[in-house]
Design a protein around this nucleic acid. Structure first.
Lengths: 218, 218
DNA sequence: TACTTTATCAAACAACCATTTCAAATGAGC
DNA sequence: GCTCATTTGAAATGGTTGTTTGATAAAGTA
């Protein structure tokens, strides 16, 4: 068992790590080939060009992430609103803090956000927006019918934001605060906090929503 | 009045726009000089090198942003917790959505997060962390003494996250959803939502905090 | 064996970019 | 009008990077 991986496989694996670490622009094919112990021309031979290799890395990283941490992974039998919130936060935070293969997707996304390539549009419609649909239903049910679609979208933003924040504040955590890893317990604490905080937020929105709707007209 | 600005002034202004638009790495001195109608060697003559020009741009952008939208800008006479939350969100959102000079800081920050330069550490300690201290006091008072420092930090993250989200999701909004600008009314709606949502979140955390503290030990 | 396909390799190519160089122009002070 | 520091200009330098080329060898095929 464990035959030596082909050059193409080694290239893809090396590219995953290097693209996640440096982003598309700062990653060089030379370094990828070096890590993969392949010739400099191997990327163009096996993948066409740097961009097509990048696309392949995205596909690989997304599949790994949603398989390792599905969005409904920690949902109990008869879930209440807070369970949905917690399961969502739990999955996203694990993808963000994971240091292995399942963390690649979040790292790629984090790079892509600041210097988007053509890949972003595909990623967004295929991989990002569908994920949040998981929560929209639960939130809509919880808020009731008198709450408008705009309010629901704002609430979704507030919930997703609390998770995504830990993805985009990476350099602050790592470079400035010097904190590189998160323990399972720390991740759990954050997930429970986000679920609790969001539950309270949704309750408050539901309570005062008519006021907000009116305030929009002055 | 309105003498023609010096070459150095024109360079700085051009650099502000181009660094904000493309980030440090993708901005070229050639383009900056072209926009500033200066020679290619002008940057090195007036600022030393590209990096020192970048530092100068940061200083300029930060000063403009906090002056245009101070963090306590919309605080009423005897502010309550929700007023602090609203004023904070109001200021941050305006900095993020502003299309003029006062929007430069948020755009630079957004670029810097994904490919940090040496400037980040200085920016963080000088410009980012101090801003959130404005809220910490209000939040601590609101939550009472039985709530630990960790809970306060988590709540701060939740609040800041909701604002910062609109900074880091730029490409999704602009490229994928095709929404480029925000009206004053839209900004106001979002600010009120964040204040309201966060108020509810803080209430809920205060209510169940003893449970969370215990959960951390199992 | 003869031929084709696949894969690897080193070297070269072409484009881009920050920076340097050095000559020319400018302008204030004497 | 002369001097000298300041500023501008065009070209050149040196380095990096994605990509291509052509040679070489191995593996498959008839």
């Amino acid at each position: 068992m464990s035959e030596k991986p082909t050059t193409k496989e080694r290239l893809l694996e090396a590219a995953c790590g290097i693209f996640a670490e440096k982003g598309f622009r700062d990653a060089t094919v030379a370094e990828i080939c070096e890590v993969a112990e392949a010739n400099i021309a191997a990327v163009n031979y096996h993948f066409g060009d740097k961009e097509k290799l990048y696309d392949e890395v995205w596909r690989c990283a997304f599949a790994t992430a949603i398989e390792a941490y599905p969005i409904d992974g920690s949902l109990p039998e008869n879930p209440e609103l807070e369970d949905y919130l917690h399961s969502f936060a739990h999955a996203l935070l694990h993808r963000i803090f994971s240091e292995g293969e399942s963390g690649l997707f979040a790292k790629l996304l984090y790079r892509e956000m600041a210097s988007p390539t053509l890949a972003l549009e595909r990623i967004a419609t295929e991989a990002i927006f569908p994920q949040s649909e998981f929560l929209v239903g639960a939130v809509r049910t919880a808020l009731g019918e008198q709450v408008g679609e705009q309010q629901i979208r704002l609430c979704m933003n507030s919930i997703v934001a609390q998770c995504a924040f830990y993805n985009f504040s990476r350099p602050l955590r790592e470079r400035v605060l010097g904190k590189k890893t998160m323990s399972e317990e720390e991740i759990g604490t954050i997930a429970r906090h986000i679920a609790c905080f969001s539950l309270g937020g949704l309750k408050e929105i539901q309570k005062v929503d008519p006021q907000i709707s009116q305030m929009g007209t002055d």
